[in-house]
């Protein structure tokens, strides 16, 4: 039992890591990863919503009528998103301003709805919690990774600290829209390399 829970947790971190393997939930992945800090903040907010919605969906899985399940899932998710909005407004206000409309948009993040539909509504509570936590942390990890690339190349900093000497000319385009697409595309290609070699 504990082994299978560990497996559900671990698959979110590597074999099914959301943005790279499943290619889901790309909007926040591209939009908020100007810096590592944004990436971590967005990732943790999504993790909270994922764990919460997975828990509640799994708890109610025998009560929700199958025909209107999507609508029920969306209401559950929207509730948790509203909660996370309030929490961030109260404790991390600058980050809340920076992420802007992308916090309410967690509602339409396909990763969250996808996990509710594909996993939580068919499995008991504990594996669902593990699945949500694993997926959420995998999401956070990928967002910080992309954020790190873009921040270091585009701004010459890492978490706000100077990385290169004064002679470094920042690669401005990396923190702008085109850089996001190119970074994600190339990282995806590197991820694809790994199973090819196996």
């Amino acid at each position: 039992m504990s082994k299978s829970i560990a497996r559900e947790f671990a698959k979110g971190l590597w074999s099914e890591i959301p943005p790279f393997r499943l290619v889901l939930g790309l909007c926040p992945v591209l939009a908020v990863t100007m810096s590592v800090e944004n990436g971590i903040g967005m990732g943790l907010a999504t993790t909270f919503v994922l764990v919460g919605s997975n828990f509640l969906v799994s708890l109610l899985r025998n009560v929700i009528p199958p025909k209107i399940r999507i609508a029920c899932f969306i209401i559950i998710i929207a509730t948790f998103v509203t909660m996370v909005e309030f929490i961030m407004q109260a404790y991390v206000y600058p980050l809340y301003l920076k992420l802007g409309i992308f916090i309410p948009l967690i509602v339409v993040n396909c990763v969250v709805l996808g996990r509710a539909e594909a996993f939580a509504c068919k499995n008991p509570i504990l594996p669902s919690l593990a699945d949500g936590l694993g997926m959420g942390l995998g999401f956070t990890l990928s967002l910080s990774l992309i954020g790190a690339f873009r921040e270091v190349l585009g701004n010459g900093t890492f978490l706000g600290l100077q990385v290169f000497g004064d002679a470094f000319v920042p690669f401005g385009v990396m923190v702008k829209a085109p850089g996001a697409f190119v970074t994600l595309g190339l990282l995806l290609a590197f991820m694809n390399l790994v199973p090819v070699k196996k």
Binding site: V23, V173, K176, A177, P178, G179, A180, F181, V182, L184, G185, L186, L188, A189, F190, N192, L193, V196
Partner: peptide
Amino acid sequence: QPLQDTSLGLVTAGMIALSFY
């Protein structure tokens, strides 16, 4: 092979974004 499909698609999207820029 590793660049196929989505990966190259994203890089292409980056180029289009650059032109819209």
